[in-house]
Design a protein around this nucleic acid. Structure first.
Length: 544
RNA sequence: GCGCCUGUAGCUCAGCAGGAGAGAGCAGCGGACUUCUAAUCCGCUGGUCGGGGGUUCGAGUCCCUCCAGGCGCGCCA
């Protein structure tokens, strides 16, 4: 709807012989109208004219049957007040479109890949991964809603040294269980899950310990990583997160894509040798220093496969690549961008979302998290205790680049005070209204979008309608900024407006015309609440 | 030392490509259920937007600087 208003203003300006980009905003205060534009002030600078006078001329040129009145205010704002019919018309569209309301064609014909979580298969997912999962998954859903063709991918690091260390850790535990004294690997994984893996390994493939150590470690490493990956997949599923593809780092080597990428860099003159290692001259493209891609021992670094991986992604024809990373990897961004540029791609096609750390608060104290030390709260445990919905919602109640203190005790003990219930309750209440209406045998309108909405004259009712109608703009803004957290705030506001309305007025009134209009209003609110929750991966219950 | 992120109410945080007396939840105090679910609602209390400069008609938002916290700065991932 905002688009239409922009067009109106644009046309008005055209009539004045002015051409400019028009920015329309929603004013904070309803006294300043339904829409406002600062175009006069922006243009006044260029035209060296008085902004208020220009605003006056714009106001006079603005003429549309849906405009109630136009006011010039402050230093030169042009405020538009729309007729009620404007809002009723828009709301009827919500009722007609249902859950498709807010679908945009912003991304029409554009493919986007969102790569997220991508935790190494060396241990269970912890809460930090959960945050990345919540953000990545919601973002993917939002981009889909905005019309993009989205692919969700999980990059499985199944080829590095860390997998070997995992194998050594399991092997050491197996030996211990066999009563043998062995030194646990210095940087081994000490989590409880390794002991459980070792126990299962001995049950399922007891012969493995008869093999020479290297071979046994290799087998245990592969087997362990696969087992852990299965657990990760099921944890994510329980969290409501799915992927289209699980890309294995190992395939980059099997298809020799790493060598290929390095050759391409070499051809571009970005590779040189020093101290027996191969270096990527990333500093020529904005990085702080050059980086090793092949160690002196001939083993490629993690960066080498990551370059190959991103080159492959770029070749796959995506319009935009989104990587969701933990913020502790931020120093990595310039390297990957430099690599893309060196390979001839536009580095801007890659957008890296850095998700800041989640600090766990337990017993009032911060708990450090480390997969190696085995100190972490598994995501699955938290989901089980607090619930998928609450965990996902909380992870999305702040922007990704802010640290998140997750007080476990609080989340567990005060679930009633969680904002997610507040929003879900609004949805359940609306369902309850319709349930009650059915029980009482109150007839329902055949098609809600044909209901006469003009009885909705209350300020609260128009306020709800206007809030609902902002939903598409929110989708657009989130898709552009890649910031899904705004949705949680919008839903809380919408729920608050509804709860307040619910407490002051009744939907199921005697007057049929008014009742049907209010039922339609409730229906429309419910549609958007439900759709908003879906985008967050949160259930919308019909009763609570 | 260099780089990135953060600093807004007692606490946890919003503030949408700078816009019009700075918001929410929680905590505190006081009210509202014979009604469509009180996991709700209504009211009150609470702020030098870390400090200082600058740009602008206009700055929580942009620039510079300082302070505080977090995270990086490996032939680890």
């Amino acid at each position: 709807m905002k688009r239409e208003v922009e067009r109106m203003i644009h046309e008005a300006l055209g009539g004045l012989g002015l051409e400019t980009r028009v920015q329309v905003d929603y004013p904070r205060d309803p006294r300043f109208g339904d829409y406002t534009t600062n175009a006069a002030m922006v243009m006044a600078r260029e035209l060296r004219t008085n902004p208020r006078e220009l605003a006056q001329r714009m106001a006079q040129a603005l003429d549309h049957p849906m405009i109630e009145k136009v006011e010039v205010a402050g230093p030169g704002f042009v405020n538009l007040f729309m007729k009620r019919e404007w809002w009723y018309r828009g709301f009827s569209r919500v009722l007609r479109e249902g859950e498709a309301f807010g679908d945009l064609d912003l991304g029409r014909g554009k493919r986007v890949q969102v790569e997220f979580v991508s935790a190494n298969p060396t241990g269970p997912l912890h809460i930090g991964h959960g945050r990345g999962a919540a953000v990545g998954d919601s973002l993917a859903r939002i981009l889909e809603k905005a019309g993009y063709e989205v692919e969700r991918e999980y990059y499985v690091n199944d080829a590095g040294r860390q997998i070997r260390v995992l194998g050594e850790s399991i092997w050491a535990r197996c030996m211990e269980m066999g009563g043998m004294e062995v030194a646990f690997p210095q940087d081994g994984y000490r989590g409880e899950y390794v002991i459980q893996l070792a126990r299962r390994a001995l049950e399922e493939m007891p012969q493995v310990m008869d093999l020479p150590k290297d071979e046994a470690v290799e087998r245990l490493a592969r087997w362990g990583a696969e087992e852990i990956l299965k657990a990760i997949q099921s944890d994510l599923e329980a969290f409501g997160v799915t992927f289209h593809s699980w890309f294995r780092e190992r395939t980059l080597y099997e298809r020799d894509l790493v060598g290929e990428a390095l050759d391409r860099l070499k051809e571009g003159g970005f590779i040189y040798e020093k101290d027996g290692a191969l270096w990527f001259a990333s500093s020529r493209l904005g990085d702080d220093k050059d980086r090793v891609v092949v160690r002196a021992n001939g083993e490629p670094t993690y960066l080498a496969s990551d370059i190959a991986y991103h080159a492959l992604k770029a070749d796959r024809g995506f319009h935009l690549l989104v990587d969701v990373w933990g913020a502790d990897h931020h120093g990595y961004v310039p390297r990957i961008k430099a690599a893309l540029e060196a390979l001839g791609y536009d580095p801007e096609m890659l957008q890296v979302l850095l998700i800041q750390m989640v600090s766990l608060i337990k017993g009032g104290e911060k708990v450090s998290m480390s997969t190696r030390q085995g100190e972490f709260v598994p995501l699955a445990e938290l989901v089980e205790e607090v619930g998928k919905d609450a965990v996902r919602f909380i992870f999305l109640t702040r922007k990704g680049d802010a640290h998140l203190d997750f007080d476990v005790d609080l989340a567990k003990s005060q679930t009633e005070e969680n904002p997610v219930f507040y929003v879900q309750y609004a949805h359940a209440r609306i369902s309850s209204i319709f349930r009650t209406a059915a029980e009482r045998g109150i007839p329902m309108p055949q098609t809600f979008h044909e209901v006469d909405l003009t009885p909705l004259e209350l300020g609260e009712e128009l306020g709800l309608i206007k809030k609902v109608l902002r939903f598409p703009h929110l989708i657009e803004s989130m898709a552009r900024s890649l910031e899904p957290h705004r949705l949680t705030y919008y839903l809380q506001e919408l729920a608050a407006a509804f709860h307040s309305y619910y407490n002051h007025y009744r939907v199921l009134v005697e007057d049929q015309v008014l009742r049907e209009a209010r039922l339609a209003l409730a229906k429309g609110v419910q549609v958007v609440v439900r759709e908003g929750l879906r985008l967050l991966g949160v259930d919308a219950p019909h009763s609570m």
